[in-house]
Design a protein around this nucleic acid. Structure first.
Lengths: 207, 207, 207, 207
DNA sequence: AATGAATGAGTGTTCATTCAT
DNA sequence: TATGAATGAACACTCATTCAT
C-alpha cells in the first residue's frame, strides 16, 4: 500500500500550502505583526497546526520570502537575457510588472520585510540584495537604451529610482484599493513615459 | 515677573514637541505598532512622561495626523488656486512634492494610518477624505492641462493614479534609504514626463 | 469512543470552575481591585490561562455576579411563596440567611459591586435591582406580619433596613473572622427579635 | 511680628485639615485604593502639596486612623463609666451609634483598614485591638444587663456580635445611600430589641 | 507653600510558543 | 495529523513618589 504514503504526503503538502497562502494574504493585509491566530483563522485551522509545519512565525515569513524571491515577478532573467532591443525589453519588463498587480501579496511581503527594522536581519539582507540586483539590472537596461536612443538621456540612477518608486506605489495601491485600481490602473505606456526620450521634431533631427 | 509662568509654558511646549517629533520619527520607522517605550527612548524620556502630555498612544497618533493634514505638503490651495497655466501649476505641485522628500515622516504616517486596519476608524476616514480630495484636485488640473495641450491625452484617472503612486513610492524610498535617495532622487522633470504630451514634430505640427 | 471529547470538556469545565472559585475567594478577600495575578496565584495557574477562558477581568466578575444572583441565597421565591404565616416565613427567611454565612463570598461580591463606583454600571444596576426586590419582598412580609400581629408595629421601612443591615454586617463579619463567628454566630432568634412584637403581659391582654 | 508666624501656622494647619478631610471623604467613597490625585482633586490642591504635609499616602491613612480611634464615636468611657443601669447605658451607647450615622466616614475607614489584607499590618492591629476592646466593653455591659434583667438571657457573645454586625451594616448603608437612610434609618429602639428580654407576662412573673 | 514635570514599578491584556492528548 | 490548554514575555496605561522651580 504505497499509495497511502503518497496520499498522506499530498495531504500534508496541501495543508502546508493552505497555511502558507493564508499567511501570505494576512501579512499583506495586516503587516508582519499579524498574529499566528490571524493566520490560522484565515486558513481555518488551529494555530497549533502551523507549529507542526514550521518552527516559528519567523520560519513562515522566511519561507514566504524565499518563495517570493523565486517567483517570476522577481526574476531578472527574462528582461535581461531576452532577445530584442533594450527598449523592447524594458517594455516587457514594465508590462510584466503591471501584470503582477493581480498578485501583489508577495511584493508587499518583501516590502514589509525590508522596512521593518525588527524583521530578521538575514531576511532583510536577502531582500535588500535582490532589490539591489534588480536595480542594477534595470540600470543596465536603461544605459543600453540610452545608447540606442530608446531611453531618455539623463542620470540613469534617477531613472531607475523613478521606475522603482512608481512600481512600488502602484502595487501597494492596487492591493489596498483593488476596486479602484482594477478600473483605473495606469497602462504600461503611461509608466514608460518616465523613460521616454523626447520626440525630436523633424527640424531638430535635421540639425 | 510673570516671566516664570512663560518660561514654564515654553519648557512644557518644548517637551511636548520633543516627544511628538520622536513619535513621528519612530512611527515612520517602525509603523504604528511602535511601542510607547520606543517613542520614549527616542525622546530620551520615560514612557510615563508621554502620558503626562497625552491620554493615550492613539492621542499622539491623532495629533500627528492632524498636524500632517495641516502641513503645507498636504495643502491643496497653492496648486489649485494659483495663477498660471495648468501645466505650470502641475509643475509646481510636483516640485513641491519632490521637495517634501526632506520630511517624509508625515507622509508615511498618513500612509500607515490609511493602511492599518486597526487604526482608529475616525482617523482613517480623515486621511481617506484628504487623499480623495487631493486626487480630485490633481485630476482637475490634469483635465485642464489636457485641454491646453500641456498634458498628454488619455484617461485622467489613470494619470492621477500614476502620479500618486509614483509620489508614494518616492517618499517611502526616500525615507527608507535617505543616503541613496539624497544623491539620486529623480528630478521633477522625470516625474512630469508621465504627464508629458508627445512632443510633436514640426512636420506633424504643420499638418 | 467519543469519551475523549467528553473528558476534555470535563477538564475544561473543571479548570474554568477552579479559576472562578479562586476569583470568588480573592474578590471576597481583597475586593474588586484584586489583580489577575492574585486570582491566578489562588488558582495555581498562570494569568494567561484566565484569558483563555474569559475575555477580561470584568467578564469574570460578571459571570460571578450572574451566578450569585442565581444562587439560592438570593432567591426570593421560597420566603415569598411558601405556605405558612408571614411570621413563619420570615423565620425561615432569616434562618436561610443565617445559614448562608457558610458561603459569604457571593454576598461580599455583590456588596463590592454595589459599592465600587468603578464597577461596570450594568452590573451595579443588576445588583441594585435585585437588592431592591429583596427589600420589597421583605417589606411585604413584614406588613403582612404586622397585620397578623406576628411582627412589631412601626415603620416597616425601618424594620426592613434594620434586618438588612444586620444581615449585611453578620455576613461580612462571618467572612472576615470565620473562627470567631463560627463559634458565636448569633442565632436566628436573636436576629428575629428586631421584628418581635412586644410580648404582652396577661394583665395588658386582659385590659 | 510674631503674628506672622502664628498666621502662617494657622494657614498651614488649615491646609493640612482640608486635605485630611478630603482624604477621609474620598477613602469612604472609593476605598483605600483611592489615588493621591483623587484626594488632591477633592481638596482642590495639587497632589504635590499632600507630600509636603505627609510622607506618603499611608501616612495620611495612618493619621486618619489615629484620629478615628480618638473620636468620641470610638470612645468607650461614656458607656462604660457612666452612672446609670446597664440597660440605660446600653441605650445611650446605641443611641450614640445611631447618631454617628451622620459622619460614617471614620467608621468606614476603620472598616476598610481592617478588611484590606494589604493595609499596613500595624494599622490593622491597632484597629483590631480597638474593635476587640469595644466588643469586650459591650459584652461587659450586656452581662451586667442580664444580671439586672434588662437584657435578654442567652450567650452574651452572640448578642455582642449581633449588635456589632447590625451597627456595621447600618453605618455602611447610611453612607452608601444617604437619602434612603435619612428617611428610614431605624430608631435605636428597634435596634435595641436585639437585647430586649421577653416581656414576661404578669402571670409568669408571679410563678 | 505650592505646583506639576518626571520616573518607574505594577496592572490588565495580547500573543508567540510549548505540549499533552 | 490536529487541537487547544497552558505559559510568560511584552505592551498600553496607571499611580505613588520625587524634585526642580
Amino acid at each position: 500500500m504505497p499509495r497511502t504514503e503518497e496520499v498522506k504526503q499530498r495531504l500534508r503538502d496541501e495543508q502546508r500550502a493552505k497555511i502558507l497562502e493564508a499567511a501570505k494574504r494576512v501579512f499583506a493585509r495586516k503587516g508582519l505583526t499579524a498574529t499566528m491566530d490571524d493566520i490560522a483563522a484565515e486558513a481555518v485551522v488551529s494555530h497549533g497546526l502551523a507549529y507542526h509545519y514550521w518552527a516559528s512565525k519567523e520560519a513562515i515569513v522566511s519561507e514566504l520570502v524565499t518563495q517570493a524571491l523565486r517567483s517570476p515577478a522577481a526574476d531578472l532573467h527574462p528582461p535581461l537575457h531576452t532577445p530584442g532591443t533594450p527598449g523592447e525589453r524594458l517594455k516587457s519588463l514594465v508590462r510584466g510588472f503591471v501584470e503582477s498587480r493581480r498578485h501583489p501579496e508577495f511584493y508587499l511581503l518583501l516590502d514589509q520585510v525590508l522596512r521593518s527594522p525588527d524583521a530578521p536581519e538575514e531576511l532583510r539582507t536577502l531582500v535588500r540584495q535582490r532589490s539591489k540586483q534588480m536595480q542594477e539590472g534595470l540600470r543596465h537596461l536603461i544605459v543600453e537604451g540610452q545608447a540606442t536612443g530608446e531611453v531618455a538621456a539623463g542620470d540613469p540612477d534617477q531613472l531607475v529610482r523613478a521606475i522603482f518608486a512608481c512600481g512600488d506605489g502602484l502595487l501597494r495601491w492596487a492591493h489596498h484599493d483593488p476596486d479602484d485600481f482594477q478600473e483605473h490602473f495606469p497602462d504600461a505606456d503611461i509608466f514608460l513615459r518616465i523613460l521616454a526620450p523626447e520626440r525630436t521634431s523633424i527640424k531638430e533631427e535635421m540639425e
